[in-house]
Simulated assay, not measured.
Amino acid sequence: MLDLNRLKALHAVHVYGSVAAAADALMVTPSAVSQQIAKLERETGARLMERSGRGVRLTDAAGLLAEHAERILALVETAEADFEALRGEVVGRLNMGAFPTAARGLLPSALAGLRERHPDLLVQLNEREPERVVREVARGELDLGVIQDWLNRPIALPDGLSRSTLLDDVADLVLPADHPLAGRKEVGLAAMAGERWISSTPGTVCHDWLVFTLRNASIEPEIHCNADEYPTQMALVAAGLGCAIIPRLGRDCVPDGVRIVPIRPRQSRRIYAVWRTDAARRPTIRAAVEALAEASRSQENAWAVS
């Protein structure tokens, strides 16, 4: 009888290309992964890994077994989802991932509500960038994810994933208080030509979106400061070091010396919950999506009265 945990370890090495990467994905040590595969070798009587330079590679036998493991693990997940749906109980463990702003701005309220209504559900939250959340949900390492895309830069989901829109997060200009445009009711991006900009780290979704959006407005961005946390970006704006475009979910307390000005035309990003379509029948997935939607509605109501 093949052990599922050992098949899972082999499949992770097959997907991620190394024992270390598989261990990171499974949240165990590399030694634990190697031990599971060594036991699987004894069970099957076949050599599954061999040395290749400084690392290891899977043998042809391992590749064949990993392909079967993928189908087996998918069937197990479907069976678990069907059984949970039959019981109708929100219990067990739910592994979630969310991008940093949502992890701070939405998840505390959503998880608190979920715990109050379903105290027997254990939720593990992992902060991830959106692309990684999508990959890990698709591969089954996360049960549910919260991701974002910008309306002018939509994200494509792989087959087998479903999503539900949680909210539209409007982005505004963040200007130093003494900026000539700080008193305007709204500002077109074309008026921001020649400004210095503060952005997220190059390679992140928000940095790439800012560059794309400014160039679409015929502005070649001069980015002088990079900071991933929005409060840091606002502090840099308050110091007069540049301007920024920050979504409302990313704004906590607006510091003195900063003015928030709406952009014309409006810029916004959409925030989604994503999960594997085969797991949609799980009561835990439905309950978590409902909690996220409730937290999103509360946030939108707070913006409406502010």
Results as ranks from 00 to 15, higher is better:
residue 138 A to F: 09
residue 107 L to M: 14
residue 172 D to S: 08
residue 177 A to C: 10
residue 122 L to S: 13
residue 161 L to D: 07
residue 94 L to W: 04
residue 96 M to W: 03
residue 159 D to M: 09
residue 123 V to T: 15
residue 129 E to R: 01
residue 148 Q to D: 00
residue 107 L to C: 12
residue 144 L to I: 02
residue 133 V to P: 01
residue 96 M to K: 03
residue 163 R to K: 13
residue 173 L to W: 14
residue 133 V to G: 04
residue 121 L to E: 00
residue 169 D to L: 13
residue 122 L to R: 09
residue 96 M to I: 11
residue 95 N to M: 09
residue 158 P to E: 07
residue 106 L to W: 03
residue 125 L to S: 12
residue 111 L to H: 07
residue 142 L to W: 13
residue 101 T to D: 05
residue 163 R to G: 12
residue 152 N to R: 04
residue 176 P to N: 07
residue 176 P to S: 10
residue 119 P to C: 13
residue 126 N to R: 12
residue 145 G to Y: 10
residue 150 W to C: 03
residue 140 G to T: 08
residue 135 R to M: 12
residue 99 F to S: 02
residue 104 R to T: 15
residue 146 V to H: 00
residue 161 L to P: 14
residue 116 E to V: 02
residue 107 L to S: 05
residue 136 E to W: 11
residue 124 Q to K: 14
residue 108 P to G: 09
residue 150 W to Q: 03
residue 97 G to C: 06
residue 150 W to S: 04
residue 143 D to E: 05
residue 121 L to P: 01
residue 111 L to I: 12
residue 127 E to N: 02
residue 154 P to Q: 03
residue 162 S to K: 05
residue 105 G to I: 01
residue 101 T to C: 13
residue 109 S to F: 05
residue 114 L to S: 06
residue 140 G to V: 03
residue 124 Q to I: 03
residue 171 A to Y: 09
residue 158 P to S: 08
residue 164 S to N: 03
residue 130 P to R: 01
residue 173 L to S: 04
residue 109 S to T: 15
residue 107 L to R: 02
residue 92 G to R: 00
residue 99 F to T: 04
residue 147 I to H: 06
residue 150 W to G: 02
residue 117 R to E: 10
residue 127 E to S: 13
residue 144 L to W: 04
residue 97 G to H: 01
residue 175 L to A: 08
residue 108 P to D: 10
residue 113 G to E: 15
residue 178 D to T: 07
residue 157 L to S: 09
residue 132 R to D: 12
residue 148 Q to S: 07
residue 160 G to K: 14
residue 123 V to M: 06
residue 173 L to M: 06
residue 116 E to Y: 05
residue 92 G to W: 01
residue 164 S to D: 04
residue 95 N to P: 00
residue 102 A to T: 07
residue 120 D to L: 15
residue 95 N to C: 02
residue 152 N to C: 01
residue 143 D to T: 06
residue 143 D to R: 01
residue 136 E to N: 09
residue 162 S to V: 01
residue 166 L to W: 09
residue 106 L to N: 06
